[in-house]
């Protein structure tokens, strides 16, 4: 299958003024030509196929939004090439807009004063959606979410969750090839998050829409993405399957135990018994980070049982969140 998004060696630089401090500094800035170049996106390449859901992750200020703005045609890359559905987005913004849908976090793109159904009708005209496709899409929406109560409600009266849901529906309405979702679940309650994840998943499955998802919520990533791309300080850190990511740092699991006697003293003893693993303790639990490539959790437990009286135990899998956190903090070796 051909790639729907092709990004090759894309770099985006911004020119910013070197600001000086204080009032005197501000006056200086007025006449200063002392610019520095900030590289928001640095030599990024990737290729995304039709129908994929890609999680685009990175800490705040990593360059995610800048990349998305380049893919949607709002920004022009400083160098490198972007092709979205065969088009260069910046050169042909209007044509590109016909092929994509965009939801930007908490900023609604719907008409504030209009009921949702009227917004849909306007979008139908703007995107020149044929009646048949439009009606089919509405039927599909009705089968996926309970939109009846939303259709006749003005957007300004909606809750944040309802509005986000409406924005997502509006972005998919013209059946675009690609939908960009920038933090779609930010600020939403647990049940709304789940609803929105199911909706995105179903629309992707039934319409084969490519979805580019940026988020800080690893729940979104676990529920939706098979592939993730991580970027930090403008540079690409990781681009692969999510399963591969979990194995990236070895197969770690955390064994937590509670023993008789003074926990801190016991922990010191355990440290000498399993010198390969990181041991930490608080008043309730002693945690041992076990690398299963070295020895199995059950073996470690068996070993400890010989010299300690274990009252209780827990086993924790390493989560996507832990892995991502580790990557943000330590980078990829």
């Amino acid at each position: 299958m051909a790639a729907i998004i092709e990004i090759q060696n894309v770099t985006k630089e911004f020119k910013t003024l070197n600001r000086h401090e204080g009032l005197k500094g501000s006056l200086k800035d007025l006449f200063s030509r002392d610019y520095k170049i900030v590289r928001a996106v640095d030599n990024v390449s990737m290729s995304i196929e039709q129908g994929e859901i890609v999680g685009y992750l990175g800490p705040n200020g990593a360059g995610k939004s800048t990349t998305i703005k380049m893919m949607t045609g709002v920004l022009e890359p400083t160098s490198g090439e972007i092709l979205v559905g065969g088009n260069a987005p910046y050169k042909n913004r209007s044509k590109n807009a016909q092929e994509i849908g965009v939801v930007f976090g908490q900023r609604t793109q719907l008409w504030w004063a209009l009921p949702l159904i009227e917004s849909f009708r306007l979008l139908k005209d703007i995107y020149q959606i044929p009646d048949k496709d439009y009606n089919e899409m509405l039927e599909l929406y009705k089968s996926l979410v309970d939109i009846e109560p939303l259709l006749h409600k003005p957007v300004r009266q909606m809750s944040l969750g309802q509005r986000t849901l409406s924005d997502i529906l509006a972005a998919f309405l013209h059946n675009p090839k690609i939908v960009f979702l920038d933090e779609p679940t930010i600020g939403l309650d647990v049940s709304m998050k789940a609803k929105i994840r199911t909706l995105i998943h179903e629309l992707n499955r039934q319409k084969n829409t490519t979805v580019i998802l940026t988020t800080h919520d690893m729940g979104d990533v676990d529920a939706l993405c098979r592939r993730i791309v991580i970027i930090d300080k403008g540079k690409m850190l990781y681009d692969n399957d999510i399963e591969h990511l979990k194995g990236f740092f070895g197969s770690y699991r955390t064994l937590k135990i509670r023993v008789d006697g003074d926990m801190n003293a016991e922990a010191e003893v355990i440290k000498t018994e399993v010198p390969d693993f990181k041991v930490s303790s608080d008043d309730e639990w002693i945690s041992i980070l076990v690398d299963e490539d070295k020895s199995k959790v059950l073996d470690v437990l068996g070993l400890l049982q010989k010299s300690h009286k274990i009252r209780d135990m827990q086993l924790e899998e390493i989560s996507t969140e832990d892995v991502i956190k580790k990557i943000y903090e330590e980078g990829v070796q």
Binding site: T72, V74, K95, A97, Q98, F104, R107, I126
Partner: peptide, 21 residues
């Protein structure tokens, strides 16, 4: 506020879309 960006995503003339609102 950055809200202007929403006008950039529609396949119609930007000036027209903005003023028509």
């Amino acid at each position: 506020t950055g809200d202007f960006i929403k006008y950039c995503f529609r396949p119609i003339n930007l000036f027209f879309y903005y003023q028509s609102e």
